[in-house]
Design a protein around this nucleic acid. Structure first.
Lengths: 137, 137
DNA sequence: CACGATTTGTTCGTATGTATT
DNA sequence: GAATACATACGAACAAATCGT
């Protein structure tokens, strides 16, 4: 049920909704892997437009807190599965949102930032930001 | 004038528009610092709704290619100087879009991914993804 | 297998607010 | 004050993919 209450008219509604849902996830009220409320149910529960709801969900998706699957639904992200990438001397990393070609090449989720590793030997590797942890070494 | 032509109905229009604008920036047709076409002018030029135009601009902003200044306009991003951060043994890095509090704390631009560095001693540092390069060492 | 219900993706229109020029 | 420009938010519609019956 996530909890209700009115929205502060001085703050964008989608930001407030995102914050409530974010807290519900972090508190464990919505456990990883669990089905997330559908857009329609959130629209009805909070009496908001779908635009506003989708804006909030897009934010949580970008934060890696939820995973959205077209026609299947939305789910709380499983934070456990991260690849560890070791950064050695001479390696460089830059991060940004990918363009469509990079999204295909590195199989990134919608809204997922790209982590681009350029090794000392000139080769490059790309990772989805929500699936990788960089470590020095 | 960026160049025109029709849109492929099989691909989301906002993605195609983003791609055209992206190429215009990368080719140098729209130099860094230069005023970017306003939302309205893009709406008129391509005969699209404002929603579609805004979706494309949001994508470019997330990629760090443009900077949107509220009520002032949109501009091609400057090649910003990147801070070099060295990652030593025991340091860890995770990247994602920030929540609002992280955006304030680390002074991130709208749509800019967060690079969170956790040092071996437990301290943390945050950087805007468009302004930092990580290096191993 | 077929069909309808569900759910997310995209797109249009319209309106109001706020900040800058 | 007027014009410009971005932010937010409402409604509506259709497409596409999935799922249960």
């Amino acid at each position: 049920m996530i909890s209700g209450g009115e929205f502060d008219p001085d703050i964008a509604t989608w930001k407030q909704l995102a914050e409530r849902l974010r807290l519900a996830i972090r508190s464990g009220e919505l456990p990883p892997g669990q089905r997330f409320p559908s857009e329609l149910s959130l629209v009805q529960q909070y009496d908001l437009s779908r635009i506003t709801v989708r804006r909030a969900l897009a934010q949580l998706r970008n934060e890696g807190l939820i995973v959205v699957a077209k026609s299947r639904g939305t789910f709380v992200a499983d934070q456990q599965e991260r690849t560890t990438v070791t950064l050695s001397k001479g390696d460089q990393v830059q991060t940004r949102m990918p363009d469509p070609e990079e999204r295909r090449r590195y199989q990134l989720n919608e809204g997922e930032p790209l982590v681009l590793v350029t090794r000392a030997d000139g080769t490059t590797e790309g990772y989805g930001a929500h699936r990788v942890t960089l470590v020095g070494g």
